[in-house]
Design a protein around this nucleic acid. Structure first.
Lengths: 146, 146
DNA sequence: TTAAAGTAAGAGCATATTCTCTTATATCGA
DNA sequence: TCGATATAAGAGAATATGCTCTTACTTTAA
């Protein structure tokens, strides 16, 4: 009668696990490519975003990058410590703090750009345009915890 | 003449960033579902794997789950502290340590199973079988840093 | 204008992730 | 058997991630 046996937990079918696994491998690949300039993929993302947005608050940055607000704040710390970004008060809102790329940050980003492009190129070459396009489209349209 | 301007860094096109972002959202969704039983998605994965493999070394577990060896070792710590797994010496190899589910761990896993199934079900319902199948197939065949 | 509601962000806590260096044990060839 | 090589795993350091709680300011409604 034991219902307790249940169906075996097909953990290999876990969509979360599959996505996390892929993200880990991808991070290792990109981190390896960026290592010569001393940036992690997360840091590169933030610097690149700052280049585009010029000046943003922590909350805005977090939203753009799909990151928790507090995580974004913490991730900025090493970049500020290393002088790649500057964090100052907002002129219009006393609660907000404004993040901007420093010249050193812009230079670092410039140095990192070809390494990132090479990672992109290599990933695309390894998987073909079709697979890459499918990946991006599928990820983009995912509805998670609607 | 300034080549220095370069092409703008289309950070939105970063495959690594896209995958990480999706993985973060997915983790938050699954973690939320599992929260009532006090497990994170990573912990659930490891317990479920231990249920299937019965007894494994840290290295084996890491390989199975696609995780760095040292990460796996550290992730096991909270589970051992909470009595969900037992770590003992290997009978055949003095270097190796053997990980196994405790009765408490098995019970916790049993409690978590329906929550995980609900997360899977909801994700599948939100995205449709086609998209989910495409996602899994695409992730499975990805060649990263060949 | 003042009290209430809303928003920006830091602090503290805990887990997750990977790197390098180190130690202990196995194994294999000379 | 012993020395070289290989393997299992912990220690330490650093970043990444997200929670709750708290503080500081803003905005809004009475």
């Amino acid at each position: 009668m034991s219902i307790a046996t249940e169906q075996p937990l097909a953990i290999g079918k876990c969509h979360c696990g599959a996505l996390r696994r892929a993200a880990r491998r991808m991070s290792q690949f990109y981190d390896g490519k960026l290592a010569p300039v001393g940036l992690r993929s997360t840091q590169f993302s933030m610097l690149a975003l700052l280049q585009q947005l010029e000046e943003v608050s922590v909350n805005e940055l977090a939203r753009h990058i799909g990151l928790d607000r507090t995580t974004a704040g913490k991730n900025l710390r090493p970049l500020e410590r290393d002088g790649l970004i500057a964090i100052g008060p907002s002129a219009t809102d006393g609660r907000s703090r404004v993040i901007a790329l420093t010249p050193e940050g812009a230079a670092r980003l410039l140095a990192a750009a070809p390494l990132w492009r090479e990672a992109q190129r290599q990933f695309e070459a390894s998987n073909g345009p079709g697979t890459v396009a499918t990946l991006r489209e599928t990820l983009a349209k995912l509805s998670i915890g609607a």
